[in-house]
Amino acid sequence: MSLRLSLLALLALGACSDAPSADAPGGGETVARVGDARLTEGDVANALGDGPVGLDSVTAREQVIEQWVQRELLVQEARRQGLPDDPGVRRRLADAERATLEMAALAAFFDQAPPTPSEADLQAYYDRHSEALALREPYVRLRHLRLAAPTRATEARASLDRAIASPFPDSLFALVAREYADDPDGAIAFAREYVSEARLAALDETLGERVAGLSAGGQGTAIPIGPTVHLVQVIDRVPAGTVPPFRLVRDELAERLGIQMRRDAEARLIQRLRSEAQAAGRLDVP
């Protein structure tokens, strides 16, 4: 769950329920109060628990408290004006409740049986749809070092060439990246993946143009771009029209097949609920 969703869930408390007591789960010391509504340390901790790593905790805490106060002030003003009795407001509240319950029912269903494709499922899907998976543009796999210290470019290039010529180029490249690259982890991860030439050109036009002219399997090439030096070696090329190997598209297939399985499972759930409602005499559809 994102921090935004956590905040929305927390702030919705003011609109939908009474404030929790200090000794209730999620309670604790009160950190903010608007009338009889209270925001506790437990509420704040729950809202921050799923926040992104690296987020300033002090700033995030202040955001939680301030947004809760703002929301509660408006909620209480709406109640003071009698807006919960307005027909339009009641209708929107009912619609929101139904939508929330619908999502909760689906979430509970998928929690019990997550629609996760197996490796056999993915391989079978790949085999059935391999022709449709043909690449529409050329892809390339690179060893790429962006140098934090361009003055070491000659030394770094020699080290890269030794790694390429060794029996264990990937392992030695990781050592070279940690010695010279300004983003070692990024360089190591990038070298494991295939990237479309169009995406590479979008990242840096000059780099894309130079890489397009390099042959696969050659030595490292130094490409100066502004104050930065890029050391590049093309490991492999996959031309447009090629059916990519399974490993290249596995993650994409897992996402695609997972969505399809989720839709199929949801349809089966709806059909089961429909049959049960009909059998119990609770469903009447013209």
Rank of each mutant, 00 (worst) to 15 (best):
L5V: 09
L7S: 06
A104Q: 12
D121L: 07
D251K: 13
D18T: 10
S275T: 15
V211Y: 01
A280G: 03
L106D: 14
E66P: 10
L106T: 14
L133D: 05
H230I: 00
R157N: 12
G217Q: 01
L207D: 00
A174V: 02
V69W: 01
L273R: 15
D50C: 14
L147W: 01
A124K: 07
P286K: 06
H129R: 15
R210I: 08
D121N: 11
V69Q: 05
D127G: 09
I223C: 10
L269I: 09
R256A: 10
W68N: 01
Q278H: 13
I164T: 05
Y139D: 00
P286S: 05
S166A: 10
D95H: 11
D264F: 07
A96W: 05
Q271V: 14
A9N: 13
G28L: 03
V64S: 13
F246R: 12
L83C: 04
A279R: 09
L269S: 12
D161S: 05
L93H: 06
A153L: 06
V53H: 10
W68D: 03
G82N: 13
A32E: 00
P52H: 05
G220H: 08
P115H: 12
S215K: 09
D56M: 09
S196N: 00
A153G: 13
L93S: 10
D183T: 14
A78T: 11
A107L: 09
R79C: 13
G208M: 02
E102H: 15
R199T: 01
D182H: 12
L231Y: 08
I270N: 12
Y125M: 12
G208Y: 00
A12G: 14
P25Q: 05
Q67F: 15
R247N: 05
E137P: 00
P286W: 07
T228L: 10
P224M: 13
D170E: 05
D86E: 15
R91S: 12
P87M: 05
L11I: 10
L145T: 03
G35N: 02
Q233W: 03
Q67K: 14
L257S: 09
E77V: 10
R38S: 08
E41A: 15
S159Y: 08
E72Q: 15
